[in-house]
């Protein structure tokens, strides 16, 4: 691959993101759901937590001891906003591939000289806009509804955590895309994995409440570190240096998962191309 190819792939990457963003904003109804859900989903858990705590100080103290923050609403809003972003990423590459396959454009795209990885991740870049939108809505909801303010330094540290976690999460998305090319559908698998993440990664509870095997499982999954570290930097004011171990683990997971994803995607893409499955759905 020469410099011209790399430059061409960068432009193609931007064009893929721009194309998806253009299509997305021509369905304005989707904007409403992205205002409603980032508030409604965590809010329901906040009310549930308040009901269970019964307004007692000892239960609030127990929560603070286990999570490192006494901001129950903040903890739940951060956890669920991370979940919504995760869902976008997990669905992103696989779904965009599947959509192209159903539309009939996948073969035409694969006939161009653009890299497969550009096609895979370009559309997913537009999801970053939605992710930023979710985090802004959540920040505003926390500030207006619960008086929880997030300062610019906390936001910067959270951005760093997100940046470090991104390769691992997009790699998982790419693995789903490989499944799409091999088996044609990914919904059941994504639902299963999303359920697993919800159950053990600590979106609405600290993982310390899980049984030992659950904690072991949680520590093997990248979202656990993302959610815990986001909570730590945003709500407890933790410096990045204090979570450097977590960030190193996330980086390592990112490298391993990315290599695995590239290998799996190339294998399945070749299989699909030779078997004429690119246009089948």
């Amino acid at each position: 691959m020469n410099v011209a190819d790399i430059a061409g792939d960068f432009r193609a990457f931007g064009a893929a993101a721009r194309k998806d963003w253009r299509i997305l904003r021509r369905y304005p109804g989707s904007f409403i759901s992205f205002i409603f859900w980032p508030i409604a989903l965590p809010l329901a858990f906040v009310f549930q937590a308040q009901a269970f705590a019964g307004g007692r100080e000892d239960t609030a103290a127990a929560f603070a001891a286990r999570t490192g923050t006494n901001e129950i609403a903040g903890f739940l809003f951060v956890g669920w906003s991370a979940y919504m972003w995760l869902s976008l990423i997990l669905w992103g590459p696989g779904t965009s591939l599947r959509t192209e396959q159903i539309r009939g454009s996948l073969e035409a795209i694969f006939m161009t000289p653009a890299s497969r990885l550009v096609i895979l991740f370009g559309p997913a870049v537009s999801h970053l806009i939605w992710a930023a939108w979710i985090f802004v809505v959540v920040g505003l909801a926390l500030w207006i509804g619960f008086g929880v303010t997030i300062g610019p330094f906390e936001a910067l540290r959270a951005s760093a955590v997100i940046l470090v976690a991104t390769p691992a999460l997009y790699a998982i998305g790419a693995l789903f895309a490989a499944v799409v090319l091999r088996f044609g559908d990914v919904h059941a698998l994504v639902q299963g994995v999303r359920g697993l993440f919800t159950a053990v990664c600590g979106m609405s509870f600290p993982i310390i409440v899980l049984p030992d095997w659950g904690q072991t499982l949680a520590l093997a999954l990248p979202p656990t570190y993302l959610i815990a570290d986001l909570g730590a930097v945003l709500l407890a004011g933790t410096e990045l240096g204090r979570i450097i171990g977590d960030l190193a683990i996330l980086t390592g997971m990112g490298v391993v998962l990315a290599l695995l994803a590239v290998f799996a995607f190339k294998r399945t893409e070749r299989h699909a191309r030779r078997g004429g499955r690119l246009a089948q759905y």
Binding site: K19, R22, I23, R26, Y27, R103, G104, S105, E107, A108, M111, A279
Partner: peptide
């Protein structure tokens, strides 16, 4: 290549 016909276009573009 013209492979899958009209449905291979992006209709919202």
């Amino acid at each position: 290549a013209v492979l899958s016909g009209e449905r291979s276009l992006y209709w919202k573009l």
